[in-house]
Amino acid sequence: MRQLETALIGAGLIARMHLEAWLAAGACVRIHSLDGRAEELVQEFDGFGVKAVGSLDEALDGVDAVDICSPTDTHRDIALTAIARGVAVVCEKPLAADVAEAEEIVGAAEKAGVPVYPAHDIRFAPAFARLHELVAEGHLGAGTVARFTVAGYHPRPWTGHATAESGGILTDQMLHGVDIAYWLFGDVVRVHAHYQGEITAPAPQGTAAVGTVVLTHAGGALSQVVSRWTPTPQPPIRVTFHVSGTGGTIVHDSEWPQEIQVSGGPAGTFGYYGESPFTSEIREFAQALRGGPQPRLVAHDALAAVRITQAAARSAWTGRAVELPVKGAAA
């Protein structure tokens, strides 16, 4: 197996999870971070083929891929620099803060023939991965209506500065739900959205918000996504879906008992959640970088997710449904 080399940009929470996944996939990793935390991460993973480098230039020199886990507003410049040097791009969601930047990245990548793999990790969660397999194998028949809910607690205060117009939850957590809807039912032509609760950042830990989105797919299927930041940490995350088609339904609830359940006492340290979706995701990207099959996530998936979530933000801000042109549909 060929030794992969990856440049990881950023040293925060997501970067750490990606780092562990790259190491599990057999890559060696150099880390570059503008906030000076790369050294901390390197010390922690001392002896695992991880080093810190002082510049983006040094990070990109001779690597197979860059994995961009820095704040969203830095994605464009890093991605374009990498693409110009022929370095494959893995990018934490969203690919860019607006549609124009996302189009610029994807356009440059296509022109240069450089792959872009967006890290929409939810596609690797077992329930969603199996759902897609069943739908792709035809067990759902023609898709009619899908409902998705995600409720989670944001474990830290919201940082950065975001206005209400920027969309809040509709452009961050909501991306997971719309990405799955797009993966199952394809292109989206119309988006309607509401948001409630806190939209702007910064905001304290425990800030609550709800996004409600209805998507109309080009093929006629409809999707509803309700996405929540909950004010309390219990339960830490709840995910459900109910997907209908002419062949029946497929449903899931993360509260169904899984491998281990404790009753009559606190769960303590019995936690077992199986393989992390990050591990499965980075392994699939690594296989593609080594010449394996195309992964389930490529550049146009990143672009679609940014287009749909930005349309949702615009719909919530304007109170109108937003029409999305589908490339090739009018031709």
């Binding site: 199996r130 067990h139 997907v243 002419t246 169904w256 281990i260 359940q261 009559g264 006492g265």
Partner: peptide, 19 residues
């Protein structure tokens, strides 16, 4: 003090097959 249930192959998805 408490009990633990272990399920080797838990239900991941449910639903109805119209066929």
């Amino acid at each position: 003090k408490a009990s633990v249930e272990f399920t080797a192959c838990p239900r991941l998805l449910g639903g109805f097959d119209a066929v």
